[in-house]
Design a protein around this nucleic acid. Sequence first.
DNA 1: AATGAATGAGAGTTCATTCAT
DNA 2: TATGAATGAACTCTCATTCAT
Lengths: 192, 192, 192, 192
Amino acid sequence: MRKKDARKVEAIQQAVLQLTRSEGLAGVSFGKIARLAQVSPATAYVYYRDKTDMLSQLYLEVKVLMDEGLDGQLSAKQGLRQRFKLVLWHFARRFNAYPLEANFMRAIQANPHFVTPETITASTAMIGPLISLFEEAVAENALAETDPQLVVALLFAPMTQLIETRYASQRPVTDDELGRVITRSLDAVFIN
Amino acid sequence: MRKKDARKVEAIQQAVLQLTRSEGLAGVSFGKIARLAQVSPATAYVYYRDKTDMLSQLYLEVKVLMDEGLDGQLSAKQGLRQRFKLVLWHFARRFNAYPLEANFMRAIQANPHFVTPETITASTAMIGPLISLFEEAVAENALAETDPQLVVALLFAPMTQLIETRYASQRPVTDDELGRVITRSLDAVFIN
Amino acid sequence: MRKKDARKVEAIQQAVLQLTRSEGLAGVSFGKIARLAQVSPATAYVYYRDKTDMLSQLYLEVKVLMDEGLDGQLSAKQGLRQRFKLVLWHFARRFNAYPLEANFMRAIQANPHFVTPETITASTAMIGPLISLFEEAVAENALAETDPQLVVALLFAPMTQLIETRYASQRPVTDDELGRVITRSLDAVFIN
Amino acid sequence: MRKKDARKVEAIQQAVLQLTRSEGLAGVSFGKIARLAQVSPATAYVYYRDKTDMLSQLYLEVKVLMDEGLDGQLSAKQGLRQRFKLVLWHFARRFNAYPLEANFMRAIQANPHFVTPETITASTAMIGPLISLFEEAVAENALAETDPQLVVALLFAPMTQLIETRYASQRPVTDDELGRVITRSLDAVFIN
DNA sequence: AATGAATGAGAGTTCATTCAT
DNA sequence: TATGAATGAACTCTCATTCAT
């Protein structure tokens, strides 16, 4: 019984991820999902209240997958800059390892209309530990900038965009390139 | 024969931009446009062949608006780093001055499904002069990185994301903040 | 002035005939006509009250074209069978000479919904002289059948259908074949 | 799961046949079908992929209905002329018994634009046995003509057109009339 | 739990027609 | 006369969702 369920949910979720890549979030419909996952359109409603609920739940699951193991990096017994570096590498690796999921996550983030406001709140809450790390850094005067959004932009945007651009142009990022972008981003906000 | 009512096109375009902000590109429908612009759904077809054509044309117009005046900055009689700085400021100012248009542009760029491939080609061609500037910089060994996508990510992503984030959280970016982000981005790729 | 008009009406009519062939009567729209005839959709309304009026008028004109010269054959100083033969040959020749017009005529006759009832009445009235010939034949006991519809079916249907079938299968009818079908049809209804 | 409601398909098909009679094939729209059959316009899409598919399927069903029992006549242990006579009577009876279906069939045949090319191919294949009978007749030198299209025109067109004309003028054909037309048509192509 | 059937609402689009010049 | 602009109505078709089994 359980197994059957799991396989169906799995199939539905995979269908959503694939359709998001091939047709964009707007092209994700219950009809197409049903065809791709080989289930009835009605079956999706056994697991999800409606479309928004489906995308919201999937988004949160994907978010969890992307964050998995992040705590270890955050609490590493190392210097501040080193810990930020571990965090950046963590996401870089995850984005590369789960391109379909990363693409779906970006699509939702670029278009939050598809999920509930609570989902956005919840997903923001998930980066709480990261915020703590940031506050620690500010307190220690380790950063050249103090506004969180500004720092996040300087630290994460280049790496994220590089992976995204390369994914779109079908040209994989090398570890060497990731390393250089991360180092330069860190240089841009860390004092000395 | 009847004259084209410029107010109608204007109203239609404004409706598209507003709907893209409030509901995302997927929420842009001819019905909603018509209601918002106070015209008949059929009227839009006088100006545009279909939805793809409408978004494509509007995207190119917006792109032109965003690039307007860029040439002057590119050909300024100044050093390389200074000219890159002028370019970054150019876009920062434009994005701030035309938030609705910038949002629409980002939406299309994040989801090129909605426009024709030719549109993508044409819009890419528009940044030719910028590429030239980049090549000049590489030739003069002014940059710490040589891969275009990597440099673009380091230079533009932080500024763009900051404006975007602040727009979403309804908290305007100050010129001071923009200046700091731009300077740090330039520091990240320019040698000394 | 006049010339210009004539050219436009001509262009419109030709467009209708061509569209009827390539897409069927249902595919004839003012938009397509305008594009094909290189006029404005509104121009057609200078000459025709509406779509039904346009098709009705054109149908009658085509009918006249098809009947042109029929009177001569009907009043020929020859025997009854010979005169029927002349009539059959008349239509056979016309249908072959004006395939586009014949096709349009058949389309209307198979689908009288597109024209006004008066048009049907008028076009039926045009075959009055033919009816007279038929009555003359009945009076002289020249025919094996006396019901008009039955005789018409036996006399005209084979020839008409052959031309139609061949037109559809792009294989022209030869004069020899027409001659044989006509002779056999005449044999089928004429006594001895 | 819910069972397919046979009454719904039936109602939809009847609506198509009736609309074809009253407004012609061009007047058959999903909206009108829905109103007449008392279902939602969307329901028709449960059964048919699109309009072309709907007309194609219905056409083939009608064709089967019209041919039903034809095999028995074709393989009758009787002379050639007698077997052709049986075939003609078969269709005459069917056309009279199913006027709505016959009208729809003629409409499609006069306007194959509305169905898929495969449908035309399939429906042509259905008359294979009839072709065999014809070839047998040619081989035995029983016919005065050898071209299939020409023979078909001479044999079938008069009967078909008579029924059609009478149907249009609301005056039923009698068996006596049918018998006479069939006999004369057979006379026209059979040697002695 | 699972699903095919069914549907109202709305999508994009074309149509015949009228308006204003 | 001639026309491009404009439109309400209708079109084909898809959608998210519910129903009945």
